[in-house]
Amino acid sequence: MNVFRLLGDVSHLVAIIILFLKIFRSKSCAGISGKSQVLFALVFTTRYLDLFTSFISIYNTVMKVVFLVLSYATVYLIYLRFRSSYDSESDTFRVEFLLVPVAGLSFLENYDFTPIEILWTFSIYLESVAILPQLFMITKTGEAESITTHYLFFLGLYRALYLANWVWRYHTEGFFDQIAVVSGVVQTIFYCDFFYLYVTKVLKGNSKLTLP
């Protein structure tokens, strides 16, 4: 464990909690892409299959459980509890265009052709594109509540911090996980234009992000 990874996990947790609380307290999921949240729940499900088979640390187990519970709870809030506020007309990204290539690639490019490893690889590739329905929805509606932009900021920051963690681990222990690093770079690049808008608009105190 290093400071970059710890900050990354905290940033990830903050993002997930921000989103859950925003929906739970405002009793509305307006502007939120349910499709992205389903993809994130799928990412955690396929990545944390070893939750019951291999114990790594209390921290590892607790964080996996928290991520799984909060992501499924968020999907529940969007599609069941507050489904009347779910804007399905704006959440139209064709997720099959993500799932099929990601599934195909995880069979082609992985470290070990076993179910656990292929599902882990699937979760890594899927996570790098899971935010696209949400970013697409924002470009389609042309705006996002500021709380949603804070969620996206911490979510994008988390993988950027993981990139720093991999640079650090490469230089200190020679560790290099090419699949995770390449996917992490792609994932973080998708946030770049959002980061620019976030810094230039939201942090200037605008109530919400409106796209030009």
């Binding site: 464990m1 990874r5 996990d9 990830h12 070893d50 291999s54 790594i56 640390s57 590892n60 964080m63 996996k64 991520f67 470290y111 490893e117 882990w120 993981y162 963690n165 681990r169 490469y170 020679g174 560790f175 290099f176 996980d177 090419q178 699949i179 995770a180």
Partner: peptide, 10 residues
Amino acid sequence: AMMSRSHDEL
């Protein structure tokens, strides 16, 4: 560089 994944990262 090693090509492996870490099992302790989230």
